[in-house]
Design a protein around this nucleic acid. Structure first.
Length: 586
DNA sequence: AGTGCAACTTAGAACATGTACT
DNA sequence: AGTACATGTTCTAAGTTGCACT
């Protein structure tokens, strides 16, 4: 067993490594205190060894029969210019390539890769014809689909080999899965929403761009022949193995461990423990910010109203963003006057605030909420004499807010409210919606509904799947067929009743029962799918809901955990599956 | 207080795989 | 065996937070 583990880890990993061996637990606990002392002060590991990243495959020039045309005439491009052209060609069917900003950014960056001759010839993107290249890539992807089983198998094996070689590292005597060991390949940047940088060239990352982080006493990863790393460092205060600087925003990208790893699992667990501590003092905090609505200091009123929104509506903190560098999106502290409408009275309700803004990933947040009179009056005050594009909370930012929160509770930040409210909502909804005598599919529907309540709170939306209508229809067809089957079975049962043979009758009864169950299952599935049309459950499940609530619910109602969490999720939440019993309370 | 950067979590879309049907 | 679509996985962008520096 690993001896370099902390308590949190010991209490879950031990279960899978040496379940049932009491001795092991005792040793784990005994070693934990000793370990904890060694892991204070931000030390994340003692030993780290890995093989470094896998680079994107080199560019393969197009066959000579696949041509690029400029102004109707074929033109052979230099390899550098050709590669960038293929990035555009591959996206030709995408809406992106019709957008002005995308085209402008692409063309500017493409020209940088051209030879001076190319540059002087190719001056207008509209005169560029990429269609042969595009057709070629489509044909290639068709060919890939049409490969024989053996060919596909071979590729799968190669991927597996790469995973085995580069996909794992050793951290403190344990082999851990790496999340993203492949370096992001070059291509055209695709931002979300109206991103001013969409279409820019994301350049190829080379070994000399790479910083390796590993322990001094490990076997260092070797750079590809003839190349060097930018740097090899030994920083055990951070968790990443590899980093490089990306050229679009100039930000740093990292290779880190998989969510199933000890280091991520422990952090996740800690996050939920912080949220549970908030649960204990949230009443006090709420009373406090309600008091602060009355403060004579503007900054305090703004802080208190913002906090109310963060708590009630689960808004994100909302950092300031550099204008022109990213899409124009906001969170709570960065809300502008134009994002709210105040209705003293609307549809029979008093003091309604209408929110309409783009949040993270340019997902629209639209909500009409009745608020308390005092909040409403404050908002009127904050908006007085301001232009639409002025900040609503001009005396507040995330830094001020988080400093305040830190004073209220150790470890409290704006995002803890989202975690807390998501988890507590799940717990309440599960309590409310689960019927003891429902069968398992119906219970799962209840679970999904509880999950859905959270997703709606957190505004986790998705574009309705392209095939949504069709798939609903398909399901309805199945349901109709099942209904026919059921009435047939019922008729047979009836006539069987005339028959004296008990076993025969019994088999018909069973058949009816079985079909009824199948029908019910289909109907539940249809309801679930319909309700889920524009809602994405995954994000809240993965990032906001204390998994121990779900584990406890499964145990309590005899629902197999596999019905709630797939394999990956079970790996990520291994700690919780091991830790929580049926009366766990968040 | 303000700024910039580093490190980390959170996010939806795109892509790959599995499965249920014909 | 082939197809269609549901489900799972990968990808990487876009957030939050804390800290150093001024």
């Amino acid at each position: 067993m690993n001896h370099q583990r902390t308590h949190a880890d010991a209490s879950y990993t031990c279960g899978s490594d040496c379940r049932g061996e009491t001795v092991c637990h005792v040793q784990q606990l005994a070693r934990f205190r000793w370990e904890e002392e060694r892991y204070t002060d931000g030390v994340k590991w003692k030993f780290l060894e890995h093989k470094g990243p896998v680079f994107a495959p080199p560019y393969e020039p197009l066959p000579s029969n696949v041509k690029f045309y400029y102004d109707g005439k074929p033109m052979k491009l230099s390899p550098e210019a050709e590669e960038v052209a293929t990035f555009f060609a591959k996206m030709l069917d995408h809406e992106y390539t019709t957008k002005d900003i995308f085209r402008k950014n692409f063309f500017k960056d493409w020209r940088k890769e051209m030879t001076s001759e190319e540059k002087s010839t190719i001056t207008d993107l509209k005169k560029c014809n990429f269609s042969e290249m595009s057709e070629y890539f489509k044909a290639q992807s068709e060919a890939r689909k049409a490969m024989t089983k053996e060919q596909k198998q071979k590729i799968k094996e190669e991927n597996e080999r790469l995973l085995q070689e580069y996909g794992f590292c050793i951290m403190d005597n344990h082999k851990e899965r790496i999340a993203n060991f492949r370096i992001e390949p070059p291509g055209l940047f695709r931002g979300r929403g109206d991103h001013p940088k969409m279409g820019m060239l994301k350049r190829r990352i080379r070994p000399q761009d790479i910083i390796i982080n590993c322990s001094k006493d490990s076997k260092y990863p070797t750079p590809p022949p003839g190349t060097k790393w930018k740097e090899v460092r030994h920083d055990n205060k951070v968790t990443w193995l590899v980093s490089w600087t990306e050229n679009i925003q100039g930000s740093i990208k990292y290779i880190m461990l998989n969510p199933s790893s000890r280091i991520k699992g422990e952090k996740d667990w800690q996050k939920y423990e912080t949220a549970r501590r908030l649960k204990k003092c949230v009443d006090r905090l709420r009373a406090q910010y309600r008091e602060d609505w009355k403060s004579k200091e503007m900054r305090i009123r703004q802080r208190a109203v913002a906090l109310y929104f963060i708590d009630k509506l689960a808004l994100r903190a909302g950092n300031e963003k550099e204008e022109g560098e990213t899409a124009d999106t906001v969170g709570c502290c960065s809300l502008r006057v134009e994002h709210l409408k105040l209705h003293p009275e609307s549809e029979g309700q008093e003091f309604v605030v209408e929110f309409d803004f783009l949040g993270k990933d340019s997902i629209r947040y639209y909500n009409r909420v009745p608020v308390e009179k005092r909040v409403f009056k404050n908002l009127q005050l904050f908006m007085e004499n301001k232009e639409p594009d002025d900040d609503l909370f001009d005396r507040l930012n995330t830094s001020i807010l988080n400093k305040h929160l830190q004073e209220l509770m150790d470890g409290l930040t704006a995002k803890v409210f989202r975690t807390y409210n998501a988890s507590i909502t799940l717990q309440q909804q599960l309590k409310e919606l689960t019927n003891a005598d429902d069968n398992i599919p119906a219970k799962i529907l209840s679970y999904n509904r509880a999950n859905r309540a959270v997703a709606i709170l957190c505004n986790h939306q998705r574009a309705p799947p392209k095939t949504f209508e069709k798939s609903m229809q398909n399901l309805q067809t199945k349901i109709d067929a099942k209904k026919d089957q059921l009435s047939d079975a019922k008729r047979e049962l009836k006539s069987a009743k005339a028959d004296a043979k008990f076993s025969f009758l019994e088999s018909k009864r069973k058949a009816v029962q079985r079909i009824e169950e199948q029908l019910m299952k289909l109907e539940v599935q249809a309801t679930d799918r319909e309700e889920n049309k524009q809602i994405a459950l995954g994000t809240s499940k993965l990032n906001y809901l204390d998994p121990r609530i779900s584990v406890a619910w499964c145990k309590k109602w005899g629902v197999p955990i596999e019905k709630i969490y797939n394999k990956t999720q079970r790996e990520k939440f291994a700690w919780a599956i091991d830790m929580a019993d049926e009366d766990y309370e968040f």
